[in-house]
Amino acid sequence: MCSKILLVITAIICSGVVYAQEGSSATETEESLKNCHRLTLSISHSHIKEGLKNESGLTGITVASWALDYDYWFSNHWAIGLHNDMLLENFSVATERNDKEEEVLERSYPVASVPVLLYKPWKHILFLGGVGGEFAKGENFMVYRVGTELSWPINKSWEIGVSATYDMKKSYDTWLIGFGISKLFHR
C-alpha cells in the first residue's frame, strides 16, 4: 500500500516539475478557475477485488455507485473539495484479520466522504488525493483516495468528465470508474 501511495505522489510531483518548465498554460481565452465553485454529479462502477460473488469463494465484484462532489478552486491549478460516493448494493468482502484467518465482512450501502486536494497541471486533466472515511452499518473505515479526472467544457458554466479513483481501506480496496457532469459557479 505504501508503494502505491509513493508512486502516486511521485507522479504528481513529476507533473508539477514538467509544468514548471512549460510556464503558464492559461491563455486569455480560457475562463479562470480562481474563486470558482464546482458541483459534480457522477455515476460510476466500483470494482472490489475482495468482493465475494457467491458462496463458492470466487472474488471480484462490480457495484454501481453515485457520487456528489464539491470543489473550490482557490487558484487556476489548485482546489480543495469534498468528494462523496455511495455504493448502491449490499455486498460481502473476504478480509484477513491479524491472525491471518479469512473473515467475511458484510457491507450495506457504504457511503464514503473524503476531503481532497486537487491539482490541475493541464487544461483537461487533474489529480486528486485525500483522506476520509467510509461509513456503513457495522464497521466504518478510514479511506485513502487517489485519482485522476479528464474533463471537457460544454460551455462557460458546464463540463463533462470521466474519472478514475482508487480507495485504499483497512479491509478492502475499491477502483471507481465514473462519468459525470459538473456545474461551475464563477464569481
Rank of each mutant, 00 (worst) to 15 (best):
C2N: 10
S3W: 06
L6Y: 13
L6W: 11
L6Q: 11
L7Y: 08
I9E: 11
I9A: 14
I13S: 08
S15W: 08
S15M: 11
V17E: 10
V18M: 07
Y19C: 05
Q21F: 14
S25G: 08
S25D: 09
E28M: 02
E30V: 05
E30Q: 01
N35K: 04
C36Q: 12
H37V: 06
H37Y: 13
H37K: 01
R38Q: 12
K49D: 15
L52A: 04
K53M: 12
N54K: 01
G57Q: 02
T59Q: 09
T62M: 13
D69V: 00
W73K: 01
F74H: 04
N76E: 11
I80T: 07
I80Q: 06
G81A: 08
L82P: 02
N84V: 10
N84R: 01
L88Q: 04
E89T: 14
N90V: 10
V93G: 09
V93E: 06
R97P: 12
R97T: 15
D99A: 04
E103M: 10
Y109C: 07
Y109W: 14
P110L: 05
P115H: 03
V116P: 03
V116K: 03
L117D: 11
L118W: 04
L118R: 09
P121F: 13
K123A: 11
I125T: 08
I125Y: 09
L126K: 07
G129M: 14
G129E: 07
G129Y: 06
E134L: 14
A136Y: 15
K137H: 15
K137S: 15
G138R: 09
M142E: 15
M142V: 12
Y144R: 05
L150D: 09
W152M: 12
W152H: 09
P153R: 08
N155G: 13
W158I: 13
G161N: 04
S163Y: 03
S163P: 00
M168P: 00
K169N: 13
K170R: 15
S171W: 15
L176T: 06
I177L: 10
G178Y: 10
F179L: 14
G180S: 00
K183E: 14
F185Y: 11
F185E: 10
